[in-house]
Design a binder for these strands. Structure first.
Length: 104
DNA sequence: AAGTTGACTATTT
DNA sequence: AAAATAGCCAACT
């Protein structure tokens, strides 16, 4: 049984258009849960199995990937998926939020 | 019930 | 510029 907050978060994340990204704080705010960026991450960690939520389009405010076991390796699923969405990464692996941030 | 944890963010070192 | 600190608040144990 998932909390309502989780469902709101999943709903918002599902709305992120292809080729765009959103920060945790932004998702939280859009979901009606301001200041609860952490909760967004928490929710994504508990992603329902089999859901097609584009969790890879959610990144932190620094424009970087925030997965718990990040590691510098290029084999991060998230980065690969984002590249497939035509999202550009800086040489440092940073996404230009000025360009790719989702603005509803 | 009370304390710990965390896919965060902004501020300060 | 990068790393540590503080603030935040719901979910988890």
């Amino acid at each position: 049984m998932l909390s309502d907050s989780y469902e709101r978060i999943y709903t918002i994340v599902s709305m992120i258009p292809k080729g765009r990204v959103a920060t945790y704080g932004q998702v939280a705010e859009l979901a009606g849960l301001p200041r609860q960026a952490r909760q967004v991450g928490y929710a994504l960690n508990n992603l329902p199995k089999g859901s097609r939520i584009p969790w890879h389009r959610v990144i932190n405010a620094q424009g970087k990937i925030s997965l718990r076991s990040e590691g510098e390796g290029s084999d991060n699923r998230q980065m690969r998926l984002l590249k497939r969405e035509k999202v550009k990464f800086s040489p440092s692996g940073v996404i230009d939020l000025k360009v790719f941030r989702w603005e509803p």
